[in-house]
Write a protein that binds this DNA or RNA. Structure first.
Length: 504
RNA sequence: GCACGGGUGACAGAGCGGCUAUGUGCGGGGCUGCAAACCCUGAAACCGGAGUUCAAAUCUCCGCCUGUGCUCCA
């Protein structure tokens, strides 16, 4: 089986290859830490978390670098507005970033370099670009000169440099910057009074927006690496600027062997933006739903497709996630009480077999195979989720039917199902809680617990009366009691072990 | 305007030359007194037009609609 990925430079699905056999060097653009992370960030880092997980699952040794942009106009502005020092602002938002991403079960990257720690490396690259004739010193900083390498223009977005040339009338707005061409972008910005700044051959200043990723990715991963990711919006100009910088500086082409970009999150059909007021931080949404449900909602689409966030999507995700958890719990319970080493090993599966156990195991293996094919196809997590849900149905069928397997086989089957779910839904998709948490009741809101305690005696008494009525087949009396409980906000569920109840 | 994506059942969303996607919702049935959960089963789709092909949701062309980028943005 081989992995295919959609490379945005070649604009097609290509065979995934690595520079060094068995090793993947990947870099994903991180956040500018001037504020809390929003849903779009969640989508991006979950998408690349999945890619990270699947590469490792496929046997690659992955080196994953993700940066923090900790100096930038927005940080300076926010620091000025709030009166918080920019260093403190940055620290707070980085701490919040880790909290949010941990909640979403995103595995940590290997390193999270901050751009202020790489100013020296950036200066070196800028100097090299000046020496090679790709950059020049203007009045307020250093600029990359696009016309020094026009063949690299529009590589990721297919823009035609001639159109851009003629479209802008070839003129440069004179802002006194000393910029030679409107396409040129800043490598180094001279400091304005009161701004944080670093010393450089071109005076006090700070890096331009694009150079940091070139400096950090090359510091960790070398002059060429395997995979570079980020949001759709970064293709132009950010990533094209990286191509200019990296390739002109190193002379290598391509520096990045696979460019991957994730699609955006829309809100009820509209672009998510602060001005539209439809902007959710991860924290906002986690007040309403479980982190793993949000994760499922975001994994339940191909990473390159846009996602339209709405109530329906979350409702679907809630149900689907619940189904996965219920199945996982049922699988765990089916062999609960056996220790793992005493479980009889499963036979080899064969879907065509007449022996129920062999056939059932064969079906599970088929699901796992479909799952792997989906993930190998440009990380098609939507299809992978479909395989998980189909497995849940399959597992539920076997486990709830008393006739298919005897008790011993049931434990073996349940154990196999457990491992399958843990591998697909857990290890790769990151959607499962721990075994302990799955088997124990979730922690409750203290207010809810208090309410339950308050009414427990009354409910218990009503349930006894209802049980008596049911035993006497007095259904109307039994249902009347259930209605009464409903009015108290209590939902009754009858099980083989008697009725249970919970708050609605 | 230029560039790059999309338009699939009620909804979400895969498939991208021949094979049931999947889930929710809806219909029928089973299990249960009835519910819930779970299981079985059914209906239901490929924007419009032309073309290529033995065969098209899937390829080509035209049209219509729509998203994003071209300025800070994951």
């Amino acid at each position: 089986m081989s992995l295919k990925v959609h490379d945005n430079r070649r604009r097609q699905k290509v065979e995934f290859t690595t520079i060094e056999p068995g090793k993947v060097k990947m870099y994903v653009c991180g956040v500018t830490v001037y504020d809390l992370c929003h849903l779009g960030h969640a989508r991006c880092y979950i998408a690349f978390d999945l890619i990270h997980r699947w590469l490792e699952k496929s046997g690659y040794q992955v080196q994953y670098i993700q940066n923090f942009t900790d100096i930038e106009d927005k940080i300076i502005n926010r620091a000025n507005e709030t009166g918080i020092g920019w260093e403190k602002l940055v620290e707070d938002n980085i701490a919040a970033y880790y909290q949010d991403m941990d909640a979403l079960n995103i595995l940590r990257a290997d390193e999270y370099p901050r751009c202020t720690e790489y100013v020296k490396e950036m200066i070196d690259i800028i100097q090299s670009l000046i020496d090679k004739g790709n950059a020049y010193v203007g009045n307020d900083g250093v600029y990359f000169h696009i016309e020094s390498a026009p063949e690299k223009y529009g590589i990721l977005t297919g823009q035609n440099i001639d159109a851009v040339r003629s479209g802008a009338g070839g003129r440069v707005e004179d802002t006194g910057s000393g910029k030679k061409d409107h396409k040129d972008f800043a490598l180094w910005k001279s400091a304005k009074p009161g701004e944080p700044s670093w010393d450089s051959p071109w005076g006090e200043g700070r890096p331009g927006w694009h150079i940091e990723c070139t400096a950090m990715s090359m510091s960790y991963l070398g002059e060429q690496f395997d995979l570079h990711g980020g949001g759709e919006d970064l293709r132009f100009p950010h990533h094209e600027a990286e191509i200019f910088q990296g390739e002109c500086h190193t002379g290598c082409s391509p520096v990045v062997h696979h460019w991957l970009h994730n699609g955006f999150v829309n809100m009820d059909g509209e672009k998510m933006s602060k001005s539209l007021g439809n902007f959710w931080t991860i924290r906002d949404i986690l007040e309403k739903i479980e982190p793993l449900v949000l994760r499922l909602a975001l994994v339940n689409a191909h990473y390159r497709s846009p996602i339209d966030m709405n109530e329906q999507l979350l409702a679907d995700a809630t149900k689907n996630h619940q189904r996965i958890i219920e199945t996982y719990r049922a699988a765990l319970q089916s062999w609960n009480g056996h220790s793992e080493d005493t479980i009889i090993p499963a036979p080899n599966g064969d879907m065509a077999s007449q022996i129920p156990m062999v056939k059932s195991i064969g079906l599970l293996e088929k699901m796992a195979e479909g799952f792997a094919i989906a993930m190998d196809d440009d990380f098609n997590s939507r299809e992978a989720v479909a395989k998980v849900l189909a497995s849940c149905r399959e597992i539920g069928k076997i486990l709830t039917s008393s006739t298919v397997l005897d008790d011993k086989d049931r434990a073996t089957y349940g154990y196999e199902a457990t491992l399958l779910l843990e591998e697909m839904a857990g290890e790769v998709l990151g959607l499962l809680p721990s075994r302990e948490d799955t088997l124990t009741e979730p922690e409750e809101d203290p207010a809810i617990s208090a309410r339950k305690l308050e009414i427990a005696d009354a409910v218990a008494e009503l349930l006894v009366r209802r049980t008596t009525a049911r035993a006497a087949k007095d259904w109307s009396a039994a249902d009347a009691i259930r209605d009464e409980l409903n009015e108290m906000g209590v939902v009754v569920t009858d099980t083989n072990d008697g009725p249970t109840w919970d708050l609605a």
